[in-house]
Simulated assay, not measured.
Amino acid sequence: MGPLARTGIGIALACGVLVTAVGVGRNSDSDHEKEPPKGPYVALGDSYTSGPKIPPQTGDPAGCDRSGRNYPALVARELGIEPADFRDVSCSGATIAHLTAPQSTDHGTNPAQLSALSAGTMLVTLGIGGNDVGFSSLITNCVTTGALYELADHFTDVSGKAPCERRYTSGDTDTIAQQIHTTGDQLARALHQIKRRAPGARVYVVGYPAILPAKGTDCDDAMPLAPDDVVFLRDKEQQLNTMLRYRARAAGATYVDTFTPSSEHNACSPESTRWIEPLRPSSPAASVHPNERGERGMATAVLHAVKD
């Protein structure tokens, strides 16, 4: 979904499927197993997890842009997890590589995120992949192209493709789909590492909320995209989430769908209801990133999965 928070337009867009436990019956032991863990809880991820510019900004290093009201903090509070048992190591601009290697920021270095895990970790949330796919530059390029074509009043060519779609697809070649596939392979290895380091943890892969609406004509100057490119980009985000769902299932993790509940609260929705801020935010949040309402909505989706 360039770094998601550093560019201000990163999206990390920066995705998995719900893995449902199947049992032959219900008893006190199985009920106990389904009780939400009380920690230790480790939150991993990029800027859609960290919550850049949502007050209060907290944590070390400051360059990771973590909010005290991001979805991991809200989940920890709701589950009654003690502060000593909660570690949020998410960081703006993080890629899958930063799960196992340090990440340099403008204000300090974030250690490899998986270093926060241990054999005692009982709950892990992971929201990552958008930066690996390059949604930051994708959105920037599509907005620029859309604005130029709006001036020309010309959104498609003889191929029937919108300008941004034409830039990233040619014949049978779809560069975004290729990047999503490569990212999926990297995520599979990372999930294996999480399982190895925290074998007793329940792992939740958190998908990305809807950035754009289903209808291309529902966006205005807040997100100046060619209408068909709105549809193209929404489809690519859904492909990214589908990959995350698949990889979560394959690794025995649980996928958390934040796309469905946020579909009518995208960056082109009214200011009073949107979860994602447009290019010029009207609420404290990075552009094209979740605002506080969005982080609350994501927390609700995570809590529903954890308590299910």
Rank of each mutant, 00 (worst) to 15 (best):
G8R: 11
I11Q: 06
A14Y: 01
C15I: 01
G16A: 12
G23F: 10
S30I: 15
E35S: 12
P37D: 09
G39I: 07
V42N: 08
T49Q: 01
S50V: 04
P52F: 07
P55G: 05
T58F: 05
C64K: 02
C64T: 06
D65Y: 12
N70C: 03
L79V: 06
S90D: 08
G93C: 03
L99G: 06
P102Y: 11
T105R: 09
H107V: 15
H107L: 15
G120Y: 11
V124I: 15
L126Q: 06
L126N: 08
S136I: 04
L138K: 04
T140F: 08
N141Y: 05
C142V: 09
V143R: 04
T144D: 14
T145Q: 12
A147V: 10
A152V: 12
D153V: 09
H154C: 13
V158E: 14
S170F: 11
S170D: 13
D174A: 03
A177T: 01
H181V: 07
G184A: 01
Q186S: 14
L187V: 00
A188F: 02
R189Q: 13
R197A: 12
G200S: 08
A201I: 08
A201R: 06
V205W: 01
V206D: 00
Y208K: 00
P213R: 04
G216I: 09
P227W: 12
F232H: 10
N241T: 00
M243E: 12
R247D: 01
A251W: 03
S263W: 07
E264F: 08
H265K: 12
A267Q: 01
C268F: 07
P270A: 05
S272N: 10
I276E: 06
P284I: 04
A285G: 09
H289P: 03
T300M: 07
A301D: 00
V306R: 02
D308V: 05
